[in-house]
Amino acid sequence: MFGFRKNTTAEAGGASIVEKTIMTCSAGEIGQPVRGLIIPYAEIQDPIFSGGMLGQGVGIEPEDGIVYAPMDGVVSTVADSNHAIGITGDGEMELLIHVGIDTVEMKGDGFATFVSEGDQVVKGQKIMEFDRDKIKAAGKYETVVVLLTNSDDYDDFKLL
């Protein structure tokens, strides 16, 4: 649909990023889904996310446009506009990966997903690609928001 460069070496290197654990709770560990700099949740340029109202998590300033499943699970939601994917993992962990801020307004342009609702995914599996240039051209922040939407359900939830 749009011209992503094929670079298998880079992809293999990228997939290993999920081995870095960014959050834990009694239900399991969540890896880093996208290569890039992790920023504190409070620094995300969106008052709703940064306020922690939707659950705890982190922001990632992406270095490339590939998203890997950060844990095993079942795909519970794929946004119609392909910019967000929800995965339900062990112990009912409900994880949301949301690429960019207000990117719902791009109506899918610049986003490709490789999974559908109900699919099983394994940690490290490529689930989405996004075009960083298109996000910037649309005037949006490209911060990838990774949040455990039901973090309140776990007494021992921890950001690493």
């Binding site: 939601t77 967000a84 929800g86 339900t88 409900e94 949301l96 939407t149 039901n150």
Partner: peptide, 12 residues
């Protein structure tokens, strides 16, 4: 009460 399940409804 489930943000993800609400999103999964695909309500437009």
């Amino acid at each position: 009460t489930s943000m993800m399940k609400l999103m999964g409804m695909g309500i437009v």
